[in-house]
């Protein structure tokens, strides 16, 4: 698992190293480029924790550059590699901008909070139910979940594959693995 402290990346990226706010498009582009550079050293399949704990605030432009464009690139049909993201240390001070860009691009992401990992952003009710079911199990086959959420196996598999393409669950052979549950290292 990679851990990227966005506060550190920000201070390495902008010319003055005293800033704690993720603002402006050029800064967002530079931070995203740095994240991708750090990820380039990772293996074929990686889970990267993007840690906002040391970022005071983020504006819409930066949220679009850092979060939306990163997710769009790695949820694309031909991503550079199989990358998953878990967002840590997000507060209300970050959320307004993030929520806006997720809605704009129809994206969703997994955030780690005190009470566990949650998925936020644009998801259908079916996707949300399937994601919660995987989270409860940690890792599961589509067949394991079919009865639990009252859908036929092919349907739930389709939904889980959709969540995998959106990088909201991992897929290891036939199993689907929740992000942040520790099982992703298996």
């Amino acid at each position: 698992m990679n851990h990227i402290d966005l506060g550190t990346v920000l201070r390495q990226t902008v010319s003055a190293n005293l800033y704690s706010n993720l603002v402006t498009r050029p800064t967002g582009q530079a931070v995203r480029n740095q994240i991708e550079l750090l990820m380039r050293e990772a293996h074929e399949r990686t889970l990267t924790v993007l840690d906002f704990s040391h970022v005071s605030m983020m504006d819409f432009s930066c949220a679009d550059e850092v979060i939306a464009k990163l997710l769009l690139r790695y949820c694309d049909e031909n991503p550079p590699h199989e990358a998953y993201f878990l967002f840590r240390g997000m507060t209300d001070d970050h959320w307004e901008a993030i929520e806006t860009v997720l809605e704009r691009h129809g994206l969703a992401l997994a955030i780690e909070q005190e009470d566990g990992v949650h998925v936020v952003g644009v998801l259908s009710e079916r996707e949300r139910r399937a994601w919660e079911a995987v989270k409860r199990h940690g890792r599961a086959l589509a067949a394991d979940l079919a009865g639990e959420i009252g859908e036929e196996e092919p349907e739930i598999r389709d939904t889980l594959d959709g969540l995998w393409r959106r990088r909201l669950v991992m897929r290891l052979n036939e199993e689907y693995v929740a992000l942040g549950g520790g099982a992703e290292r298996g």
Binding site: D59, F60, S61, D64, K69, V101, R104, H105
Partner: peptide
């Protein structure tokens, strides 16, 4: 870029 224009909306 489709992500543009969000600033003033915000």
């Amino acid at each position: 870029d489709p992500g543009r224009g969000q600033g003033l909306s915000g």
